[in-house]
Design a protein around this nucleic acid. Structure first.
Length: 242
DNA sequence: AACACGGGGCG
DNA sequence: CGCCCAGTGTT
């Protein structure tokens, strides 16, 4: 049984099951979310910033209100910061209003109003880290870019069961390598969405639904050994509540 | 490698 | 009441 090293080398069978399982499950059980009906980079950007550490149900109404008020990135750039914050502040993490506002100005001035489609350009914008950049590149531009949010960390960490005796930074490095390696070429958009839905709806933080999980056969953590997996190195733990 | 940021939902 | 939520910037 080969373990995951720094560069993701995974068993071909486990990888194939993982890819097909995630894609199939997403197509039949995936959530119907407003930001999945569009490929507009501006809309994707707004949703992703709002979704930082914030639940889908909380974001949905604010997302709609925000786009109704600022339909284009030009409209956002011309608005007052106070008007922007009035909509986004109730979400918490109040800096995100300023981030969106500053991003809009920068994109309009430097990129002619077009959200960049290159990783380095995206990372240079305020509030856009590697996750958000990957989300924009895959969801809006269809590139095979990896994402690693709390859902994907948990799903990958459990399924591929990384080596435990290592530092947090190394684990993160391994997870990013995995997130990139598992992408079925040309299908990152659907696949990445599927990863997050699986993490949010099946491979949940507490009491994961292993019995209905399409990945169960090759998963590194079966539900009946959840106790032994109580030490999850990427931060979260399986808690089989009595 | 930690810590701050934050309101809301759930058991 | 504690844990968790489509993370990022700062120290």
């Amino acid at each position: 049984m080969k373990r995951v090293k720094y560069e993701a080398d995974v068993e071909p069978e486990a990888l194939a099951v993982f890819r097909e399982g995630v894609l199939d499950w997403y197509r039949t059980h995936g959530r119907d979310l407003p930001w999945r009906k569009t490929r507009d980079p501006y809309h994707i950007l707004v949703s992703e910033i709002m979704l930082h550490q914030t639940t889908v149900t909380t974001v949905e109404p604010v997302y709609r209100e925000f786009l109704a008020r600022f339909p284009t990135i030009q409209a956002l750039a011309q608005a007052s910061l106070a008007d922007v914050k009035a909509i986004t502040d109730p979400l918490g993490y109040k800096v995100r209003g300023r981030w969106l506002w500053e991003i809009a100005q920068e994109v309009v001035r430097r990129y002619d109003g077009v959200v960049p489609d290159r990783l380095d350009d995206l990372l240079a914008l305020p509030g856009i880290g590697r996750y958000t950049a990957g989300a924009i590149l895959s969801f809006a531009y269809g590139q095979d870019a990896p994402i690693l949010d709390t859902n994907v960390k948990r799903l990958l960490g459990r399924y591929f069961r990384l080596e435990y005796r290592t530092t947090r930074a190394e684990i993160l490095h391994q997870l990013w390598a995995l997130a990139e390696a598992v992408i079925p070429p040309g299908q990152a958009a659907d696949f990445n969405q599927g990863l997050m839905d699986m993490g949010a709806m099946v491979c949940t933080a507490r009491r994961p639904s292993c019995t209905i999980c399409p990945l169960w056969a090759y998963c590194g953590v079966h539900h009946d050994e959840a106790d032994r997996a109580a030490e999850e190195p990427w931060q979260y733990r399986v808690r089989p509540r009595a």
